[in-house]
Nucleic acid binder design. Sequence first.
DNA 1: TCGAAAGTGGATGCGCTGTATCAACTTCTT
DNA 2: AAGAAGTTGATACAGCGCATCCACTTTCGA
Lengths: 217, 217
Amino acid sequence: MSTVERPLRKDAERNRQRILDAAQDLFTERGLGVTLNDIAHHADVGVGTVYRRFPDKQKLIDALFYEHIGEIVTLAEEGLADPDPWRGLVGFLERGLDLQACNRGLKELLHDTPQGSGLVEVARERLLPLLGALVERARDAGALRADIEPQDVPLIQMMIGEVIDRTRDVEPELWRRYLELVLCGLRADPDPAAPLSVEAPSVDQVDRVMRMPPRRR
Amino acid sequence: MSTVERPLRKDAERNRQRILDAAQDLFTERGLGVTLNDIAHHADVGVGTVYRRFPDKQKLIDALFYEHIGEIVTLAEEGLADPDPWRGLVGFLERGLDLQACNRGLKELLHDTPQGSGLVEVARERLLPLLGALVERARDAGALRADIEPQDVPLIQMMIGEVIDRTRDVEPELWRRYLELVLCGLRADPDPAAPLSVEAPSVDQVDRVMRMPPRRR
DNA sequence: TCGAAAGTGGATGCGCTGTATCAACTTCTT
DNA sequence: AAGAAGTTGATACAGCGCATCCACTTTCGA
């Protein structure tokens, strides 16, 4: 169809890589809201150079996150490979959310993308059956409450995702406390005395969380 | 201090009320993001009229939400008045969140106000001790897990608040399911067979939720 | 080595959105 | 009827992020 790919000039290739690196950094730290101008500046490159390589931001995002999204699918497969159904499910949730806690852009891509940029769309379709299996297996094994459905998982991820977003700058591991709490609610045979592994936030920390500007969004 | 209040002219008073009504409607339905122009138009009044009565949006918000915020404090007091500590706590959470589910502006005021506009600040100071008492009482009564602190409450409200926001247009009562789930996690003596009172969302509903534009914020 | 092709930079223009103003006009009050 | 109070909405303003353009620089290959 199209002409054969001509290799980029040496300097151009170098700059392309710089842009990708800078974008990776900024998306991870500040989310998808960063402007291409930000990225250009962070990459020590003119804005024009960025636009020459990537016609719009979406293309850049797609290029960067393709593999990241794959990771999540892999996580679900690993969870399914665990002989213990409950541990498999919990492991998936923990690792998946951890990924989102460490990468703001990924979290936004997963949760805040209106119609998915195709990329997310595809991932979701691959993920859904795995998720279903993960949940049903844990339920059939009697570990998960009987009235929990696979559809509950995305909602749970949203809840914890909110904690992740809001507490990220104050106490980045705090979300684990609330995941554990929710997991207690999900268990069929509620493990009584198991204490939460993450301490409650201090009054001061909550104060700072509440005063934090909301989003970005 | 200031001169004696001269009553507004009859038409002015009527317009003031129209503005207040329109603002109430719009803030409730669409959140605090609505512009004063929107409000003016909705009130069938010129923009200038709005600015004459309310120097800026914040003043209008303060005027409107003063009582709403009081309601929440009242709720906490009512919860504390319940002889059953657990039921008191749960009741407070359910009603408080219900208020937020029905009033987008209120929810945003409570959760998304950077430094509170004074109004929220004050309410929080009145609320905090009540909340502390509510939680500690339930904990001492052995209904609540021992490792739950009053500080956990705001975070729980955030989690559910996120569900409220995201599912409002698809299934406005869905948040109750996830509140119940969290409550199961909070109980000291996990009530085993009590099924969730709200059904899981359908696959299609989750789909629509995920495709919904995120915020506003 | 040198000229054409490829690549670069960043000031600049555009479009959008929300806030707030103002001067001509209308309505109320006494 | 006079003048104070109130109304109106077009319009100025400010901030933003996206994207372009073109004079200039670098690379490449004959």
